[in-house]
Amino acid sequence: MKIKISSILYRTIPHILFVSLLVLSLLQVHTKGLKPMLPFIVLVAGLEVLSILLYKKWEIPAIMDIIFTFITAWFVYANYLNTRVAFLFPAPNVVVEIFWGDVLLIIKSIVSSFKLLVLGFFIAIVLGVGFGLICGNVKRLRNMLLPVAEILSAIPALVYAPYAIAVLPSFWAAGLFVISSGLFWPIFINTMKTVSNLDKELYDYTRTLKLSKWDLLYRVMLPYCTPGLFNTLTMQISSAFMLLIGAEMMGMTSGVGWYVKYYVDFSVYKKVLAGFITIGILVSIVNACMTLVKRRALVWVDTKRQNI
């Protein structure tokens, strides 16, 4: 009986928070009018509807606890306690209003950053896996390049950025270069090591089949490398974002990093906060894409045994 009551309580907490948040915003409507508050109310109501709709599928309410608590605290602090330096600490309703007004620019920024990131990943994967496969097979090349690669990979790719901007024809190309060169080394090293440690029995079997070199590379070694590749990508994703945002802040004229940098320069902090949230949205999009691709590419991996 006791357990039942507490579980009911757990389930109702986000809804209680939602109702209180709604009441608070309606109080603000009373002073500020409906128009500036509408986007915020729509967002909060949307989150609530989403959490009810997806209740069974994911453990949404637990996340909702945090989200609603955070928004409530922020809302109360910014609207009631810290009204003097409002421009430094904009309220959530103000930030959401930015999304309302700037929606096209924000979507454009996300698309631009996403394109740059995906292209950077693509180039790094093609080159890293390609060279990794070759160097993993040729012992001499491997012995030659592995020490070099280990030094070069440790140099943060952002260091190249100013030089890349000077050398390459456009800021965009420089950004692409920074991202793909930062991702290239770990992919290259990982592929090289995986290939040179190909399972002995599997290798012996391919030898008894007298596979052609191409078949060995394309049909055996390439799939053999994919779990390791995805592991590397997952680990590198945060550093990829750092490179992306860094590159965008250094001189590009589009993308989420540029958006934040641009408004920091003008001290429009409500837009800066909106930019932070936009970066969060971009991160979620990229992670979702990654999970989707991974799930399709690695159906053959036993997830109970191998942590992918």
Binding site: E201, Y205, T208, P223, Y224, W300
Partner: peptide, 20 residues
Amino acid sequence: DGPGKDRGVVFQHYALFPWM
């Protein structure tokens, strides 16, 4: 002279391609 297709080998740990 090297491995040949006239001989088939079975290995202790099966040597199946896990991705197929």
